[in-house]
Design a protein around this nucleic acid. Structure first.
Length: 114
DNA sequence: GTTCTAACA
DNA sequence: TGTTAGTA
């Protein structure tokens, strides 16, 4: 199917679909006129991508875990590569949390002293 | 009319 | 991301 139909069937914008394809999250063939031709399974793939985006994962991480994400419920097939990516994301989040904690501690101290 | 790329608000 | 320009 062409990109317009995929957009209708998934609720994602044409712009987003091109973006996903450009980042390797979606594969599409090219017709002689340059139009992308998506396989039927792309509908399910987009659903998985959107579920992962909703979960807060960046596109770069999604690209890596997508092959092992089984469905829209984000149930994953246990793959070493996926575990590694998820652990890395968890590590990043922990680092961000620590930063947030330091900032709020400093700000709280300033407010209590004022 | 639909899609493509590239670029800008 | 949305949108717009200029094409094919």
């Amino acid at each position: 199917m062409r990109i317009g139909e995929l957009a209708q069937r998934t609720g994602a914008s044409v712009r987003s679909l091109r973006h996903y394809e450009a980042n390797g999250l979606l594969s599409a063939e090219r017709r002689s006129n340059g139009y992308r031709e998506f396989p039927d399974c792309a509908v399910e793939t987009v659903a998985r991508i959107r579920a992962l985006l909703a979960a807060g994962l960046p596109l770069a991480a999604i690209e890596q875990v997508l092959p092992c994400v089984l469905n829209q419920k984000l149930e994953v097939q246990t793959c070493d590569s996926v575990v590694a990516v998820l652990q890395k994301e968890l590590c990043k989040l922990d680092a961000q949390a620590a930063q947030v904690h330091r900032a709020r501690t400093a700000i709280s101290a300033m407010l209590s002293g004022a």
